[in-house]
Nucleic acid binder design. Structure first.
Lengths: 220, 220, 220, 220
DNA sequence: TATGAATGAGACTTCATTCAT
DNA sequence: AATGAATGAAGTCTCATTCAT
């Protein structure tokens, strides 16, 4: 009985804590960390300013705690699934990669606010906090992707290349679309493109390159 | 005489103005727009706080004026130069693209502080200011690149693809390295790679893709 | 039965009230009245913050109630005892006074926390509260001492002097040692001396003065 | 010329700094350190709250800086003067001591606010600050007095006694009158006495003690 | 009766901006 | 034109007190 009460209380504390943290993330994303005020966070959370400090030590503590909100993003399932099936045709590979890309775009889109907070607070963050953030960021998937590339190369499906550069370049192609379409508030500068179409083109580029006659200039 | 004096005065005003603006850009880049103080900007510029307000209306005015410092970045010369010579072999194209990439990396590197300012002040900027910033950003080169791609496709050197997506994806590959190597202060998360090597790999990927046997699965 | 229950309840209330009050006195003494927080008092008392307000109206009420903790200090027993026996020799008087002094030091030492509370809250106290405090303070013994002095003078044991000044001066000699040895946290400034030794010297001074040849310069 | 301007400016800074510090001391003395607000200090100083922070780092810095206001109090001149003239009669000695006492009372009276600040902030002060305060306090004269007593004993004017205890006891007699007449706001508890009278009585007590027939009970 | 989460007034402090010199 | 002291609005945070459970 008492235990029940205890756990109920803990649950409430947890709930309130998340409620405030989400409000903070929202306001941080919208106004930027420094321009955000505890007053507005409190309003967004539907509590008084004082209440914030019953759950967090400071405004900075809110910033540091935001990563806790986000479960570590992962593309692992789809990627490891693909690793298991070495493809024999380019078409087959394309289909698989498009699945991965879709998943990546979804993850990014889901975490756009998180990215905005990260960007707005960048100069303030110490290295430790930054890493904590990056760990929850799809950027971090680069390492998973690298492992996948190594396997594909070993399988002879991909040419031998620098996997570090390759993986990061691939993420870069994804990220720039998130940046230009989701993060940068002015959508007027960059035309918005449908993610399905983007996915197809990126995969094409990634697999085949742009050359019309690939046989020529092949690398030794 | 009077005119001379006039112009000399204007010149001085111009000089002082730039001196302050550069200090502001430096401090904004380092601390972030909101965390930066006019006091520190004044110190960096070697003037008093009051003097800033003889040249700029407000702290925000400094932010808005920073783009004036940067001549609109352009890859136009190398790109248009390349356009003029339709290549016949992949090798030849590689050499040309590497030149372009080097130039792009240099431009980005030169503007890292500018990018940092942009990122730190993103949530504060109105759309107009944002565009003003983006115009000075290598990101903006996407449009130039797009034009180049259209020509190459017309020349039959590149396959027909969506040039908007293609150009932006290419910039994304450049940008993610700038981001991970120059902007993000924690260099521990992402291994640092030499730009020459990056350039070569990106061009390889861009031209040929990753597939070991490109003949297969070729797009129709 | 009901009455029994009633009285039991009252007893409990009394107990809880004292428990809180003692905690408050402890914390007030340590941190000073204003720097002390109800939170810490609650923790010290082993109750919740809310409970404090079931027994006391406010933090200030705690301050006002602390004197209730202290029974009015009194040196009356030893002093009246002494009064009864007019001494004939200085040696005899010395012995008696040393007993009084010991008792006074003990009383002071026992009330050091009380004194600290008084000092820390002095500027906040209204005159009434201050008097309530002073009444529980050994300082208040001055009046008792004065009566003793009057009697000794009447007995011809002491010279005729201003008893008000004399009594207070005597208390001052006691108090400065309490102050320098117990209240002032920095024990480095004033060397600590054993109270027995202090007692002997003070009594010597009080009875005989410092002059080596008292016969000379005697007051008329 | 420039130097003149410089020094004028420095002088102004010095002036403003003192102006604020004196206001702070006044408010601290009246309300106690913790209950005092920067708002009231600013009002008392006739400046805005922000201005305080152009001269002091924090409210605590004000507390730490207050001793700077007070030149180190000293009774040295009168005491060393007396030392030079070993007295032969008690009457002579009385006259000299009364001068010293008057000076001491004046010093104390002049520093009453300072003492109040010290008392109010006692629990907050670290040892270093406390010492800084005590150094400006007449309490500190104990050491000077002690030296005087040693000499008088060596001169054979005073009996051999523990000078540490003796000196402090003497200061205690002075201090308790300052405490009861100047520091404790309620003057109702202790009757106020004229300092001249107090001085005479204290000196009497100090030199001759209270015994009517000092020849008896003399110490061996 | 006991609890402790919620409150909000108010404290300290920062900093962009002004203005007399 | 340059200075930098003064300003005061606004921000972060604390804490005595309340009240639903």
């Amino acid at each position: 009985m008492a235990g029940n009460k205890e756990s109920k209380k803990e649950e409430l504390v947890q709930k309130r804590s998340v409620q405030i943290l989400e409000a903070a993330a929202r306001v941080f994303a919208q106004k930027g960390y420094h321009a955000a005020t505890t007053k507005e966070i409190a309003a967004q959370a539907g509590v008084s300013e004082g209440t914030i400090y019953n759950y967090f030590q400071s405004k900075e503590d809110l910033l540091l705690s935001i990563p806790r909100l986000i479960s570590e993003t992962t593309l692992l399932p789809p990627l490891t699934q693909i690793q298991a099936t070495p493809t024999t045709s380019g078409e087959e590979e394309e289909k698989l990669l498009i699945i991965v890309l879709d998943k990546a775009f979804q993850t990014f889109q889901h975490n756009v606010d998180f990215l905005k907070v990260l960007f707005s607070a960048l100069p303030t963050m110490d290295e430790e906090t930054l890493e904590e953030y990056l760990r929850r960021t799809p950027l971090h998937l680069t390492q998973v992707l690298e492992e996948f590339l190594r396997i594909r190369i070993a399988q002879g499906v991909y040419r031998p290349m620098d996997t570090t550069v390759l993986a990061r370049a691939f993420m870069g192609m994804i990220m720039i679309f998130m940046l230009t379409q989701e993060v940068l508030p002015g959508k007027r500068v960059f035309a918005s493109v449908d993610y399905k179409a983007i996915g197809r083109e990126i995969v094409q580029l990634f697999l085949h390159g742009v050359l019309a006659h690939p046989g020529q200039g092949e690398v030794a």
